[in-house]
Design a protein around this nucleic acid. Sequence first.
RNA 1: GGAGGAUUAGCCUAAUUGGUAAGGCAGCGGUCUUGAAAACCGCCGGGACUGACGUCCCUUGCAGGUUCGAGUCCUGCAUCCUCCGCCA
Length: 427
Amino acid sequence: MHDIRRIRKDPNEIKESIARKGFDADIEEAVVIDDQWRNRIAQSERLKSELNKASRDIGAVKKAGNDAAEEMKAAKNIRVQIAEIDEEANIFKDKRNSLLLTIPAEPDEKAPEGLTEDQNVIYREATQFSKFDYKIIDHVTLAEELGILDMARGSKITGTAFPVYIGDGATLERALINFMLDEHVHNEDYKEVFIPFLVNRDSALGTGQLPKLEDDMYYVGNDELYLIPTSEVPITNLHRNEILNYKDLPIKYTAYSACFRREAGAYGAETRGLLRIHQFNKVELVQIVEPESSEQTQLDILSSATRLLDMLELPYRVVELCCGELSFAAARCFDIEVWSPATENWLECSSISNFRDFQARRMNLRYREKVGNKPNYPHTLNGSALATSRLMVSILENYQTPERRVRIPRVLKPYMNNLDQIRGNHP
RNA sequence: GGAGGAUUAGCCUAAUUGGUAAGGCAGCGGUCUUGAAAACCGCCGGGACUGACGUCCCUUGCAGGUUCGAGUCCUGCAUCCUCCGCCA
């Protein structure tokens, strides 16, 4: 949520800024409503001051054994006035806040201009491609042939685009997750957390999934809970409504979670097999840092993620999103894309975002630079490192042999009982 | 799910029949000291207004209610503890 004081100072600054994202918002209206709120609050506080004084006087009169009926009557009158004014104040406050909650984060100065995908910028050119002198078949055909993936049964037990991994496929999925977590925890200094996969409404509002993405989340009505679309939501919200000590920063968390996305309206060729599924696995990195260091932190997270792809020896490139492609809460974002040789497509397997103070403000997350100082908003960042489903696609295709087997990437072998190849049903 | 108890600022602990949150520890700044400790002084939940000094409002798990006035009384909810029930 944006700083209403800043908006009041210069409504056009934010208006122009979010226009880079292709957004428009009635910011003047928010200021008008805020004026109304301020007006009521000032009145209310003046009356409360009067009431407090009157009450203390009544106490003194009664203690002295005198009658205070008149004074009590007057005081009651003040209370009634306060109730009326507070009610109005709350209406204005709610109205102002729900308006503010629909205004997206401002893009970073460095975010490239543009509103559509083709205006994204290649931030880092593709790494070395594998050369094949035989035909590579696509991941679904191969995986189902090998018997390590079963889309049809997933569809039977749950619905379309809920994959079932079987045998070495299931082990490979688990190997990827464990490999990535181990790297972040043991070869970097992230703290591992295991979080709930359902969150309440306040959490989803805090990181900015709500109100905009309501239709993209699975909602459990009985308990008013949302299935998480990413572990960013529970992890970042761990410190919602807290005031952190500057000595605690940076906070670095990593977690595995299943992620659930309804992907409303998304069907077609791009959804084939594991390309776009309703439940997938992801290892996430989240950092809470002081504002001055967030730009560097985002690059750090980017290299933590690309390091995994280097180790997995998969071809990838890094794309920086233009303003219009940035998510609601993001100020700047890098996507990492792995190569699918069968379809000759780039597949997004990571998104690394700097939210600056946008999420912190929404969730009232603050830190104190020094004792006695006013609390300040930290910057929050996160990045997938990495989402497994498209890695799986890329592994199945890039590590495919002429015999239609799949070699196991070197770094994953220890996690696969030193298995060399997935042979599946092939001899 | 049921019964009983608990929740006061980072931690610990007070507050008479309802009278407007007292204190300790830790922490930070200062005086003193060669340095440190001790001692002493100040700060030590959030917010609004103000150039500043300050003034005011809110805060006893959360949300309501009763009252001139609520940590205290009433209702609902949450969390924790104990016991019972259920359960991978």
